[in-house]
C-alpha cells in the first residue's frame, strides 16, 4: 500500500549501481538503484537530472535507449512517482527510471509538477497526457497538456488513492434512484 517496509531498506542500505547507473555516474548524474522490476534495472533520479539523463541515454552510442515504451505514474499517498520505461533495440536492453515527486498537500485535486520531455521525445506526448489525465502529474512545457482518455469536463484524477468516485445517473446502483 503506502510507503511500506519494502521501500525502507533502500534508504538505509544503498544498492550497488548497475550498468546504467554507472554510466550516468560517469557522466555526472547521480542515481540510486532500486530493486529490479522483472530483471530490468530500476533507478531513481532527481527531478532536475531527468531531462539531461534521458537525453543522454537516448543519444549516447553506449546505451542507445532510443525507444520510450511508456510513461506511467504511481500514487504512494505522500509522493507520486513518474516512471519511464526505456528500451534499446540495438543492445536489446531496458531501463526503468523513476522520479519521485513529493505531494505539496493532501488535497485530492492537487497536482504535482514535472518537466515534460515531449519536446525532444515525441513519443512522450500522449503518454504524458495520459499520466496527467489519470494520476495528475502536470508536465510543464508540454505542447498541449489536456486530458486524453477522460472527457474534458472530468473532475479529479481517477488513479489517485484519494479519488472519490462520482455517483450520478450513469453509475448509481441504488435501485431507488433508477430512472
Amino acid at each position: 500500500m503506502s510507503q511500506t517496509d519494502t521501500n525502507k531498506p533502500n534508504e538505509t542500505k544503498e544498492m550497488e549501481l548497475g550498468k546504467f547507473g554507472k554510466f550516468l555516474k560517469d557522466n555526472g548524474i547521480d542515481s540510486t538503484r532500486k530493486d529490479d522490476s522483472i530483471n530490468v534495472e530500476t533507478i531513481v533520479i532527481s527531478v532536475k537530472d531527468l531531462e539531461p539523463a534521458l537525453r543522454l541515454l537516448k543519444t549516447s552510442s553506449e546505451t542507445k535507449l532510443n525507444m520510450l515504451l511508456t510513461i506511467s505514474g504511481v500514487d504512494y499517498t505522500d509522493r507520486i512517482d513518474s516512471i519511464y520505461h526505456l528500451w534499446s533495440y540495438d543492445h536489446n536492453d531496458a531501463l526503468v527510471i523513476k522520479v519521485e515527486l513529493p505531494k505539496q498537500s493532501q488535497a485530492n485535486t492537487d497536482t504535482v509538477n514535472l518537466t515534460s520531455i515531449a519536446n525532444f521525445w515525441s513519443a512522450a506526448n500522449w503518454h504524458e497526457r495520459e499520466t496527467y489525465d489519470l494520476v495528475g502529474i502536470r508536465y510543464l512545457r508540454h505542447p498541449y497538456l489536456r486530458r486524453i482518455l477522460n472527457p474534458w469536463d472530468w473532475e479529479g484524477h481517477p488513479l489517485r488513492r484519494d479519488y472519490k468516485q462520482l455517483v450520478d445517473a450513469l453509475n448509481d446502483k441504488n435501485p431507488h434512484s433508477f430512472r
Binding site: 482518455l149 477522460n150 468516485q165 462520482l166 445517473a169 453509475n171
Partner: peptide, 13 residues
C-alpha cells in the same frame, strides 16, 4: 462494475 469511467448499463442513457 463500479468502474469510474464506464456507464453502468446503456439503458441509463
Amino acid at each position: 462494475n463500479d468502474s469510474y469511467s464506464v456507464v453502468q448499463g446503456v439503458d441509463r442513457i
